[in-house]
Design a protein around this nucleic acid. Structure first.
Lengths: 180, 180
DNA sequence: ACCTAAAGATGATCGCGATCATGTATCTTG
DNA sequence: CAAGATACATGATCGCGATCATCTTTAGGT
């Protein structure tokens, strides 16, 4: 059954959105094409009308993924919004660097390039919020701060001990605030 | 063909060692049982004499993995040894948190527990090196410092731009040194 | 030395998942 | 409004990988 141009665009959007959530939740390998399509409300067959392959889906998903960014005027504010238990427990909608960073290294060059581009944008965003007199100082603070945030979230997710997990979030949050 | 008890123990050691390297290099899912056995110099059939399943292999691998730790008397020294381009490029023998952190979250509770235990030990090790007057201060510095190191390594590995990659390593190294 | 059971090799099995082939409905264009 | 194209559904295909069955060899206890 054929469908409106708008319908098709909407379907494509849904596929990418579902893929974004599923990949972050279960990793690239563990998610099947059929699963993505079902989550998008379609069946597996139509997939190859939208994408050449699963690899292409991965790359395009990484290009379009949009996450909600914490609000705030400083790097410390950003960290406070990022390093929460809610974010730690929300894989599907959360930070894609924390959820997919390790996996992305082993994907296609296109996927890797998309992530690098997003990383660049994220550093730029944080540089504007970071403390420091010079641009170089700000940038350095942004690079180190972002590394710390992503690392803390990854480690906090690993820990099956809630206390240790919280310590990681809190410790990093405080450290970034102190450096402010 | 039956084999000496010592031979068998040695084989088991080799399997775990090969698994440790392969998992860090390619992730849990992408590595096959046959591949691990071949890397250990055996054939796939013998695997189930040593382990009940691939899941058990994963958990036991995470329990026994040993990585070379940077030397040094301070957290800054440790970070300087950890945040190198050589380490960034050496997935198979490098830090398992950076290589497998994201993946481990989706593994069995046993695997997760093994990682948590190793995380605990690592934090303890770093607490001894960390700056601070009180034990609590040292621990906080260790938690935040370790998060920053792991995050920086993950992000540095993502970046396909060597310059950005180096900035991440250097920025985090300097930040940890400054906090010393 | 002799028997028994274990360790590993070889060769299935079995299900799953990416991808493709074909059918069907309906949008789109002239 | 008819003809053609196309988006999606349904139903293969095909290879791969985890796991199991069986065979061979020989360590280890007696």
């Amino acid at each position: 059954m054929r469908v409106t141009k708008e319908q098709m665009a909407e379907h494509r959007r849904r596929i990418l959105e579902a893929a974004g959530r599923l990949f972050r939740e279960k990793g690239f390998e563990a998610v099947t094409v059929a699963e993505v399509m079902q989550a998008a409300g379609l069946t597996h067959g139509g997939f190859y009308g939208h994408f050449k392959s699963k690899d292409e889906l991965i790359a395009q998903t990484l290009e379009q993924i949009r996450t909600v960014h914490p609000e705030g005027a400083t790097l410390a504010d950003y960290a406070a919004g990022y390093l929460t238990e809610a974010h730690r427990d929300e894989h599907a909608g959360g930070c894609s660097f924390a959820a997919l960073g390790g996996d992305t290294i082993r994907q296609s060059p296109e996927a890797r390039a998309a992530m690098t581009e997003r990383l660049r944008r994220q550093i730029a965003r944080l540089t504007a919020l970071a403390p420091g007199r010079t641009e170089a100082e700000k940038r350095k603070a942004a690079l180190a701060g972002w590394s710390a945030m992503v690392g803390a979230l990854v480690l906090a997710r690993i820990s099956d001990d809630p206390e240790l997990s919280r310590e990681l979030l809190d410790g990093t949050r405080d450290r970034i605030a102190k450096a402010q």
